[in-house]
Design a protein around this nucleic acid. Structure first.
Ligand SMILES: [Zn+2]
Ligand SMILES: [Zn+2]
Ligand SMILES: [Zn+2]
Ligand SMILES: [Zn+2]
Lengths: 147, 147
DNA sequence: CAAACAAATGAAAATCATTTTCAGGACCGC
DNA sequence: GCGGTCCTGAAAATGATTTTCATTTGTTTG
């Protein structure tokens, strides 16, 4: 899984004629070691902890490479926050987001995906992607509310 | 329709103890006279054209009031652009967006809406809203592509 | 292995959308 | 009309991201 993504990035780098650098290796390793939906700042802090020399511009630049390489996905939360998560070709999920505590839960629904394609088709659109975020209050926050 | 929204804003203003100002009247009139999904900048330019004195901070502040009053809805396009559109309680639609020419087409799908609620329920979330944007290439752009 | 060139990096500056600040102006109840 | 607020516009501040540019680092070549 992790190896697969490293290979994916190597393949992309080769195809694009990118150089192999210590910084990209480090950022990729740390990104792949996480399991969350990370903000650039969060990833930058993790990187800086073990490699203080790496600047945040490099983290920004490198995350965009990961997206282009197909191993990461960029998502914009309600409120405008940008976050990055792992992604593999063929895999797909959408998000339930708690507007109180910002917890993110992933889900998949084949029926919705199919309906989305039908809608696009009905309007003559060739669908290339979609964003779906369900916003609400998570069980924990609901419970805390009642006390 | 337009009157209804004006009344909605008046009611909201009364409830919140907001004052009635020339600027808010102007911005509301111009906002209601449009039928697009407007950026703040676009609305500001329209406003400035007939009322050069009105500043953009006021446009920003006033659009947020419209959202709170329930007559406008804020949407974030892929790429991070924020836009505002008309909204009435009970009405709801989602968007098909052409990633080539930025055309926006609205649609409604009751089945998807129902499934979204079921998904939320299954995860214990109390759903308060959602964003769904289908991204693709519109018929016009597809046609232009082939030539 | 070195030289040579280009790409990548880090720090700082620039950008861009949005928010805040604040001094003056405009509502509204009296 | 008066006075206390709320509202406004201009400008400054903010925050996230991008760009710039001098320097460092890969890579290729001889
Ligand atoms: Zn929560
Ligand atoms: Zn996810
Ligand atoms: Zn198009
Ligand atoms: Zn719309």
């Amino acid at each position: 899984m992790i190896l697969e993504k490293k290979r994916l990035f190597d393949a992309y780098a080769a195809k694009q004629g990118l150089r192999s650098t210590r910084q990209r290796d480090v950022i990729l390793d740390i990104f792949l070691s996480t399991h969350e939906h990370l903000s650039v700042e969060e990833l930058y802090l993790k990187v800086k902890a073990s490699h203080p020399g790496i600047g945040q511009a490099t983290v920004y630049r490198t995350l965009k490479l990961f997206v282009d390489a197909g191993l990461a996905r960029e998502m914009t939360l309600p409120g405008g926050q940008t976050r990055y998560e792992h992604q593999l070709a063929g895999e797909h999920h959408d998000h339930l987001i708690c507007t109180r505590c910002n917890r993110i839960v992933e889900f998949e629904d084949a029926t919705i995906e199919r309906l989305q394609h039908e809608i696009a088709q009905r309007h003559g659109f060739r669908l290339t992607g979609h964003k779906m975020q369900l916003c609400g209050i998570c069980p924990a926050c609901s419970a805390a509310e009642i006390q």
